[in-house]
Design a protein around this nucleic acid. Structure first.
Lengths: 235, 235
DNA sequence: AATGGGTACGTTGTATACAATGTATGCATT
DNA sequence: AATGCATACATTGTATACAACGTACCCATT
């Protein structure tokens, strides 16, 4: 059973104090969803893997109910596919899926950069500085997983600066299926560096109130898409 | 209790033969979700209304489990707000929400029209013809609710022609919170006519391979947004 | 040997019982 | 009279038992 480590991951999330993020369903959102999310993104539960309610319930030491509820959440995030009465499976991502997702990402993120550029405040500038600095550190430490998370925070900040909650939600919902690919792709030679250089350009454009930022994002995403597809063709 | 009619709506959905759409959770997707969706969009369950699990379970003659699962689905559609341990409420929509949603819709739908224009086939042309004709009939019958549904099918067709499943899903997920407003807005004097005229222009642009279609959509949505906000300010 | 049907098993779908939490009410104390 | 606390109630969160469905295997029949 390759999923014996699940319990360990679950215990890590269980240990986090409840007060950190109060507005969540206790077991479902606080333990089961994070555990399965991490397990799927890290490829411990590979694409196509069947998730059986009772099995997971035993391994995570909860009942079937929170597991069921978590499946709905994970489906919403695009991490699993639910086939009614037939089972739940870790979502398989095709090259076509990647094409489609990045096409939409381009539309959403270039909109976000446009809005953020227009609406950016002094505080925003400072936050951008800090976030990009964090990314630089990950690059220097050669930490692809950490860099991917920092990059996510970079995008999240842009969404925050764009000040459009619907845009933020929509974008987050789109990323799910390619999360695993992105993490792996970031380990490709030169990929992290290329991503970071592009991010610096985008930051500069935003600071200079330069509308070219929106186009830079499209370039950034084209590279990311190709890297994801490269990963896909090698496994 | 203003929700006594719920059982009636539920029975309507219960009567639909199972084979129409096989891949769904029996009770949850086939009865509970459609019933609550219709009840919310039609304003039978108004914004802010508290949805209590046991009450709904009794009225819909199911147990709490499918109701719970349906809440997750409805939250995903943007129709309800789940406050853990505090209850589920019909989502309240602010003017700001409307602004944000239509900003994102504009990005997604103009992309969709661009893609659909490029990729349209003879079959697509014919489908477009049929769909717009159905809209014309609703206009002539002065049936705002029917027209809104036909308009939804018009957008759905454009998404299909754009041939990007991720875009389709994302767009659908965005519409939820404004569904009720759109239906009401379509009853405003002249609104249905204006919407239809614009749709005809968009159709023409697509048929003529004219990239201006993407811009026409933005105009269409600006009108729709203003109508929705007008509704919001009057209730 | 191949195909058809039937039965048994595993898994999901649903119902209900129990536990935990949030809210409101009423009382006591200041 | 106002505020704080405690207790009771309503409601959600979780666990488990039962029912329905889909799949696979085996046997019988051709």
């Amino acid at each position: 059973m390759p999923t014996a480590q699940l319990a360990a991951i679950a215990d890590r999330f269980r240990a986090i104090p409840r007060h950190v993020n109060p507005n969540v369903h206790a077991l479902c959102d606080l333990v089961v969803v994070p555990t399965l999310r991490e397990a799927i993104i890290s490829n411990l539960l590979p694409p196509g893997f069947r998730l059986v309610e009772v099995t997971l319930a035993q391994q995570l030491k909860v009942s079937r109910t929170p597991v069921r509820e978590s499946f709905a959440q994970l489906e919403r995030e695009g991490l699993v596919t639910v086939l009614p009465r037939m089972g739940v499976f870790v979502r398989e991502v095709s090259p076509l899926d990647v094409e489609e997702i990045y096409e939409v990402r381009a539309a959403l993120e270039s909109l976000a950069v446009s809005l953020a550029t227009q609406r950016m405040s002094a505080l925003g500038r400072a936050q951008l500085e800090v976030t990009v600095e964090a990314m630089r550190q990950r690059v220097e430490e050669n930490d692809p997983v950490g860099y991917t998370e920092a990059l996510d925070r970079f995008y999240a900040l842009i969404m925050t600066l764009a000040d459009n909650a619907a845009l933020h939600r929509t974008h987050t919902g789109l990323l799910g299926p390619v999360r695993r690919l992105r993490r792996i792709a970031m380990s490709l030679p030169g990929r992290m560096r290329s991503s970071f250089d592009q991010a610096v350009l985008i930051k500069a454009a935003m600071e200079n109130n330069d509308p070219a930022g929106a186009e830079l994002v499209r370039v950034q995403l084209a590279n990311a898409r190709d890297a994801a597809k490269a990963v896909l063709s090698h496994d």
